[in-house]
Amino acid sequence: MRRDDRDEPFDDLFREIERMMNEMMNGADANVDFNSSSNVESGFGMDTHIDIHETEGEIRVVADLPGVAKEHIDLECDGKTLTISAGSEHHQYDERLSLPQRVNEHTASATYNNGVLEVVFEPAEKSSDISLE
């Protein structure tokens, strides 16, 4: 006796999951031009990992920037947001990171070694209370 596929209780569920995954993946690819003639990949997240470590005395941002020369890295900070712009012949990285707390951007230090960028900030002084008289 041949088994009827309709007797399988999970077939409908698996078909629906597969349909939703295909729909999601097709939607994600809709904005990607796979036929682009450009050799430059842009944006963080492609092959870059960024970590933010917060301790009582410092905020440390560690970012992987493979293939980028030190002189092609630009960093800017306004005390709340760190902007990293870096580029090479094959990659262009542009990222704005919201820092977990306000930092003193004037005391920041940065190092770049073997494709790893590390930026260290001191937390900004807490604003003082204003007393009413």
Rank of each mutant, 00 (worst) to 15 (best):
R15Y: 10
M24T: 15
D51N: 14
F121R: 02
D74P: 06
D12Q: 11
Q92I: 07
E23S: 14
G27Q: 06
Q92C: 08
I59F: 02
S127E: 14
M25T: 15
T48E: 05
E133C: 10
L99R: 00
I59H: 02
T48F: 04
N104R: 00
P100R: 03
F10H: 06
V62M: 04
G67D: 02
M1G: 08
D47P: 03
V68D: 04
I50P: 02
M1P: 12
V68W: 15
G43R: 06
D51F: 08
E23P: 11
E118Y: 09
L13Q: 11
S38C: 00
V62N: 07
D11C: 13
G45H: 04
N104H: 05
V119E: 00
E8D: 12
D74G: 09
K126V: 02
L132K: 07
D11Q: 15
N26V: 05
S109F: 06
S37P: 04
L97Y: 06
M24N: 12
G57P: 00
R19K: 07
S42K: 15
I59P: 01
E16K: 09
L132A: 08
M24D: 05
A30D: 08
E71P: 08
E58H: 05
E41W: 10
M25E: 15
I84Y: 02
E118A: 08
F10E: 04
D47S: 06
L97Q: 07
F44H: 05
H91F: 10
E71D: 08
Q92R: 14
I130N: 01
E54Y: 00
E118R: 12
H72I: 09
I59G: 02
G57I: 05
M46N: 14
I17D: 07
V61D: 00
Y93G: 01
G43T: 09
S109C: 07
S109H: 13
L132M: 08
T111A: 13
S85L: 13
L117Y: 01
P123F: 00
M24R: 14
I17N: 06
D4S: 13
E76L: 06
G27Y: 00
C77P: 06
A30I: 02
G87L: 09
R2H: 14
T107C: 07
